[in-house]
Design a protein around this nucleic acid. Structure first.
Lengths: 345, 345
DNA sequence: GTGAAAGCGCTAACAT
DNA sequence: ATGTTAGCGCTTTCAC
């Protein structure tokens, strides 16, 4: 019994190679699989981490989850996911459930819980906030660097010769809005373009609000030649507004978005946009969590993940005409067709 | 100890109400939370089910997962998810991992494993296939009724007066392709329209293939007045092909798609399409699995979930002009803004 | 290098 | 209606 355990769990206990093999063979023979529940009870480690996610339907979260899973896999952790639907009570209940199940750590994706202490008090285990939307500068958070992203977008437009650049921001109160605005101003300053608050409007992240804002910008006394929208949905609305006004995009109005959702590659013109670094956020947060669990590393300052610009056609600046992008999940599609066992039904 | 257990686990054991309250109070006082790992070891039930999913990036899977979670929640199950990336070896490894963790049942979403016996042999627990792509008619599967969906699409076109209707199908070998074609033929027959195989082309599910197929159809001797594409991506390609050829959609060519992805509501014209009943598939499969675990119910014949038609603008037939659809996940967005604790950062 | 025995926290069987 | 005891399957002392 003891020896068997030692052979299989490859502890650092000394053991005769011969015996080890004998055990391994016997195990294979009998189809023996150790019972991890019993092991967990004994060792106080479940090799399971709990994930509280706002909602898998948000376009970012599946990518974040994928980044997380990739790293957890490597460390032999599995995860239990609970949807919070942005309800604080549900989040708290989830954390208690995790505690009862003795999970080793918690990842909170787009959580609305503000205090890290509260999580620790409830669960008593290490945890990391991923893509926090409001207190993004708190420690133990992994978040996108929206200020840098804003700069990227505006820098691109300035590089294409634009000097009168409108900005359709998200609502106030969101860190994303504040930071993207900072990036916008940074680049104007760097290019010695005076800030004009007539050119800055606020939307609500949805298509219609981008459309409305763009109509206002277009009918401005000196209308902008380019617009930076703080997300792709509003960028799309801006494109439609321009097209309805008889303006060519990008010829008469260049538009750059933010997020790089699927949709940005399917519409015409394809939307040039700043990619939200979801997978990388997922990876880094899982990495950090594992380190915290292992006792290395401490809760560091917030980790900002830079995005990158994806150039399509809505700003010009690329010689490529609009092209058909393959679906993002399609690397699997390709394999599907050649999947060993999947012939005719 | 025993009494405490009985009070908390609300077994059907008789117990004095007074004692029960005393235990509950004490538990609250001490912040006691039962250790579910220990309970599982003892009871041989983990209240956890394993989900093998092809890939969370596929547009259907987050919706399916949501349907699953909703039902599992009600039954106090939690789930562990493993991505298979459409690799049979990974799937098998996942099932073995689940077994080692003593999960109570398995859900296989878009699995490429063909035999139910194999799963049972590996895991020894009940399991259900969800959205099987190839052996969809095997028992213990919950799948979309693609034949009915195909009928829905074509019926809609015929109802609008079209009699010459092209069909851009998915590749051979996929159950979805075969069944949507059946639906197409069913409706032609019902309307006494002769089947013309010149009007049926095959794509590879991607945008470009829809574009190419539509160009062929458009340059046909007697070009169709409508096209049914077996997914939204190919429908989009068809729309672009028509527009490039100077045809108005829906005026000169009506297009109906399949799946109802996000994108279908964002492009112009919005794509009229058959909605893949993802949430319902998720719900039904979780429901079935729970019944199998509880010993009620047996592995039934495949369960076909009907889809429904979502009318937008690509076929006409609606008086509404193109409108701005709210993002699907946006019901949460609305709550976000009013989330109790999420003020300025 | 190997084995014997204890015990993780719970619940089920068996007293009382 | 409550308490006592054993044991789920593993790992970890501790002895040999």
């Amino acid at each position: 019994m003891t020896t068997a355990s030692r052979a299989l769990s490859n502890a650092d206990h000394p053991i005769a190679e011969e015996t080890r093999q004998a055990v391994l063979d016997a195990a294979r023979e009998l189809g023996y699989r150790p019972n991890l529940v019993a092991r967990s009870l004994r060792t106080d480690r479940t090799l399971t981490i709990g994930i509280v996610v706002e909602n898998l339907l948000s376009p970012f979260n599946p990518l974040i989850m994928q980044g997380i899973q990739d790293v957890l896999d490597k460390h032999n952790y599995l995860s239990i996911t609970i949807n919070s639907y942005w309800d604080p009570d549900t989040e708290i209940a989830a954390i208690q459930t995790f505690r009862a199940r003795q999970i080793d750590g918690i990842l909170l994706v787009e959580s609305c819980i503000r205090s890290s202490d509260e999580v620790f008090r409830l669960a008593g285990v290490p945890h990391v906030f991923v893509h926090r939307l409001f207190d993004s500068l708190a420690s133990g958070s992994v978040v996108p660097d929206d200020r840098q992203g804003g700069r990227l977008a505006v820098h691109h437009l300035i590089g294409l010769g634009h000097r009168r650049i409108g900005f359709i921001n998200g609502p106030e109160g969101w860190d994303a809005s504040a930071n993207r605005l900072r990036g916008y101003r940074d680049e104007l300053t760097a290019a010695a373009i005076p800030f004009d608050d007539q050119l800055v409007l606020v939307g609500d992240w949805e298509v219609r609000s981008g459309y409305d804002a763009a109509r206002t910008l277009i009918s401005c006394d000196t209308r902008p030649t380019a617009v930076f929208a703080a997300n792709d949905l509003m960028a799309l609305g801006a494109i439609y507004a321009a097209q309805e006004a008889g303006l060519d995009v990008p010829g008469d109005l260049a538009v750059v978005g933010y997020d790089d959702r699927d949709m940005a590659g399917f519409v015409r013109p394809g939307i040039t946009t700043v990619q939200m670094p979801c997978q990388e956020m997922g990876r880094r947060s899982a990495q950090l969590l594992v380190e915290l669990i292992d006792g290395h590393g401490d809760r560091p300052a917030p980790i900002l993940i830079p995005g990158k610009l994806v150039v399509r056609q809505s700003c010009g600046g690329s010689n490529e005409p609009w092209d058909f992008e393959p679906e993002r999940a399609s690397f699997t599609r390709v394999r599907r067709r050649s999947c060993p066992d999947s012939g005719q039904a």
